[in-house]
């Protein structure tokens, strides 16, 4: 019966996927010969163009063909409006990582300071409370005006959205390091730096990593919207561009790619979290 436990969930997943594809296929099945446009218009453009399926929504097979095309040739570059999905994803990932790492460089040291001192905590708290709920995209016009560069502005938006969860979690993790571990460090006359790196950082690491995992998730959500705004490159721009091209199959491919990359980012952060987590 062990087989059922092991294979049950994956089999069910596959069954769900097949059911979904079947419903999708049934809903978008091409009804050949049916006129779907105005009779006058049909005369104008010819029967071939006027017949076809009811809507432009593609069938699973069409999306599959498009997907296969993206997978087999992800890095082509035919000018600014026609780049492979791999190139677009690479642009997005690069922006997210730069903004995210900058945010980590700022948030973790400041979070450390805030967590160490209740006074600094209280002093920073009102600012954090006001700035945290601001939608990162609201910063975009301000960023475009001050930074004068759409690419840098997108990175700034990623920075500003991923800084808060890391800052708050670092401060919380540092502030809630167990008193007894700090007392051990005190009785051993451990210096400030050594205490920070050997006691407080490992003790707060799981909480900090949780914040980093939340941040990467938010950053990946935001990059799509940011790139739709700033345009040029990136997976968000790709999706928007395909909307202008009215290529629903490409949009679906883009959405799928966004989901997969997001999952990989989250999983890698989860893996890192497990590395620094200690059993009590």
């Amino acid at each position: 019966m062990k087989g059922v436990q092991y294979w049950g969930a994956p089999l069910l997943s596959v069954a769900l996927l097949l059911a979904f594809l079947a419903i999708w296929h049934a809903a978008t099945r091409p009804e050949t010969g049916t006129r779907v446009v105005d009779a006058e218009y049909a005369k104008l453009v010819g029967a071939e163009a006027a017949t076809g399926q009811k809507s432009a929504f593609p069938t699973p097979a069409e999306v599959g063909r498009k997907l296969w095309g993206h997978i087999t040739d992800p890095f082509y570059d035919k000018g600014p409006n026609d780049k492979g999905i791999g190139i677009q994803l690479a642009f997005s990932i690069a922006r997210v990582l730069i903004g995210y790492l900058l945010a980590a460089l700022v948030a973790i040291p400041i979070g450390f300071l805030i967590g160490m001192s209740p006074l600094v905590y209280r002093a920073f708290d009102p600012f954090i409370q006001v700035l945290k709920p601001i939608s990162p995209l609201a910063w975009m016009p301000l960023a475009l005006f001050t930074l004068q560069d759409s690419g840098v502005s997108a990175i700034f938006v990623i920075f500003i959205c991923s800084v808060w969860p890391m800052l708050i979690n670092t401060a919380f993790g540092v502030a809630s390091v167990r008193r007894e571990w700090l007392n051990v460090a005190k009785t051993l006359e451990v210096g400030h730096l050594r205490r920070a790196f050997r006691v407080i950082l490992p003790a707060a690491a799981p909480t900090i990593m949780t914040g980093m995992r939340i941040s990467i998730g938010i950053a990946w959500l935001v990059i799509v919207a940011a790139e739709m705004l700033v345009g040029g490159t990136g997976i968000g721009y790709f999706v928007w561009n395909e909307w202008n091209n009215l290529s629903i199959a490409n949009i679906i491919s883009g959405i799928l790619a966004i989901g997969l990359v997001g999952m990989v980012l989250d999983l890698s952060l989860a893996r890192l979290t497990r590395l620094v987590t200690f059993p009590e």
Binding site: V184, T187, E189, P202, A203, P279
Partner: peptide, 19 residues
């Protein structure tokens, strides 16, 4: 004046660093 390596403490809850 404050804690010192001259006086070692054994804590009730052992206070070992779990990492």
């Amino acid at each position: 004046r404050g804690p010192s390596l001259d006086r070692a403490v054994i804590f009730q809850s052992h206070a070992l660093m779990p990492w």
